[in-house]
Computed example of a mutant assay.
Amino acid sequence: MKVLGIGDNVVDVYIPERIGFPGGNALNFSVFAKKLGHDAEFIGTFGSDFFGKNVKKILAKLKIKNDNSRTLQGENGFTKVELKNGDRKFIYSNHGGVTKTEGVFARPEYFWDKDLVHFNINGNCDQLIEYVNRENTKIIYDFSDFKINENKLQYLILRIDLACFSMPNVSRSSVSAFCKTLKKINSKISVLCTSGSKGAYFFEGKTNQLTFVEAKKIKVKDTMGAGDSFITYFSLNYFEKNQKKSIKSILEAATDFAALQCLKDGSFGYKFTIQ
């Protein structure tokens, strides 16, 4: 598949170690898709600073196309992170740096040959969804913990194929009710709700079926990027043309893929030292 992650790129700065790990929902999607053997591209806005330069160096090593991205004067997106028992805690963010202040630029033709495009709530490029040909291209959108107004939520749900949410402390009945509310907006919507160590739910609007999978029990090293790896694996397999796998089997395989990610440092293991 030809896939595109468009939106945010962030450097997660681990303290007190002062080590930077590239990440961000859109960039992580592209990296994980490439790892899974797909033709992956990233489009975003890099800062002109030390962080932006290092993210681009790492993408070059990974051979992920990003030449439709812009580099602008200013700060790259970054956060400061502490690890506590393997779980990452964000203690500071510059809210995306130039991605937030300048946005992300793309032309309609950048989407023409793509099978799947990933947008997200931190990408600052929702207006570009209108460029995607919905007849040929599937759209997934990562809402994270969905701090978004109702009008914006309705606008997006009408225009996407798979909505992804982080819902760590909810019951099955709450997930089911929430998904059915989204179906009232878009009868064909599919919804993926990840709940960390509690597992994940998938709701398919076409069938009204809600499927649950338990999380894999492992000794976690770092949870950074776990949700992104799960979303990437699931969406690529769910939207694969002529795929005949069951939803349950795809969810289980996505769980295994995300569990492996939790054994690595940072979003996908690549790092650089901050002087």
Rank of each mutant, 00 (worst) to 15 (best):
residue 243 Q to H: 13
residue 244 K to T: 13
residue 244 K to W: 01
residue 244 K to I: 11
residue 244 K to S: 10
residue 244 K to N: 12
residue 244 K to C: 04
residue 244 K to G: 02
residue 245 K to G: 04
residue 245 K to C: 02
residue 246 S to W: 10
residue 246 S to Y: 10
residue 246 S to I: 03
residue 246 S to M: 11
residue 247 I to H: 00
residue 247 I to F: 07
residue 247 I to W: 02
residue 247 I to E: 07
residue 248 K to N: 12
residue 249 S to Y: 07
residue 249 S to E: 15
residue 249 S to V: 11
residue 250 I to H: 00
residue 250 I to R: 00
residue 250 I to K: 00
residue 250 I to W: 01
residue 250 I to G: 01
residue 250 I to Y: 00
residue 250 I to F: 00
residue 250 I to P: 00
residue 250 I to E: 00
residue 250 I to T: 05
residue 250 I to V: 15
residue 251 L to E: 00
residue 251 L to T: 07
residue 251 L to D: 02
residue 251 L to G: 05
residue 252 E to G: 04
residue 252 E to D: 15
residue 252 E to P: 05
residue 252 E to F: 10
residue 253 A to D: 15
residue 253 A to E: 15
residue 253 A to F: 08
residue 254 A to D: 01
residue 254 A to N: 02
residue 255 T to V: 10
residue 255 T to N: 13
residue 255 T to G: 14
residue 255 T to L: 04
residue 256 D to L: 14
residue 256 D to S: 14
residue 256 D to V: 14
residue 256 D to M: 12
residue 256 D to T: 14
residue 256 D to R: 09
residue 256 D to N: 12
residue 256 D to G: 05
residue 257 F to H: 12
residue 257 F to E: 01
residue 257 F to K: 02
residue 257 F to G: 02
residue 257 F to N: 06
residue 257 F to A: 05
residue 257 F to V: 11
residue 258 A to V: 07
residue 258 A to W: 00
residue 258 A to T: 10
residue 258 A to D: 02
residue 258 A to L: 05
residue 259 A to I: 09
residue 259 A to H: 09
residue 259 A to Q: 08
residue 259 A to T: 10
residue 259 A to W: 07
residue 259 A to R: 05
residue 259 A to L: 09
residue 259 A to C: 11
residue 260 L to D: 12
residue 260 L to T: 05
residue 260 L to C: 10
residue 260 L to R: 13
residue 260 L to I: 11
residue 261 Q to R: 15
residue 261 Q to V: 13
residue 261 Q to W: 03
residue 261 Q to L: 04
residue 261 Q to S: 08
residue 261 Q to K: 15
residue 262 C to R: 01
residue 262 C to I: 03
residue 262 C to Q: 06
residue 262 C to W: 05
residue 262 C to A: 11
residue 262 C to L: 05
residue 263 L to E: 14
residue 263 L to F: 07
residue 263 L to C: 07
residue 263 L to Q: 13
residue 264 K to P: 00
residue 264 K to Q: 13
residue 264 K to C: 04
residue 265 D to Q: 09
residue 265 D to K: 11
residue 265 D to R: 11
residue 265 D to A: 11
residue 265 D to Y: 13
residue 265 D to H: 10
residue 265 D to T: 07
residue 266 G to P: 00
residue 266 G to E: 02
residue 266 G to K: 02
residue 266 G to D: 04
residue 266 G to C: 03
residue 266 G to A: 04
residue 266 G to S: 04
residue 267 S to E: 07
residue 267 S to H: 05
residue 267 S to T: 09
residue 267 S to R: 01
residue 267 S to A: 15
residue 268 F to C: 03
residue 268 F to I: 09
residue 269 G to M: 09
residue 269 G to F: 07
residue 269 G to Q: 05
residue 269 G to K: 06
residue 270 Y to W: 13
residue 270 Y to L: 07
residue 270 Y to C: 06
residue 270 Y to Q: 13
residue 270 Y to M: 09
residue 270 Y to G: 00
residue 271 K to L: 10
residue 271 K to F: 12
residue 271 K to A: 11
residue 271 K to E: 08
residue 271 K to C: 08
residue 272 F to K: 08
residue 272 F to T: 06
residue 272 F to D: 04
residue 272 F to G: 07
residue 273 T to I: 14
residue 273 T to A: 13
residue 273 T to S: 14
residue 273 T to P: 00
residue 273 T to W: 10
residue 273 T to N: 13
residue 273 T to E: 15
residue 274 I to T: 11
residue 274 I to F: 05
residue 274 I to E: 06
residue 274 I to V: 12
residue 274 I to R: 08
residue 274 I to H: 07
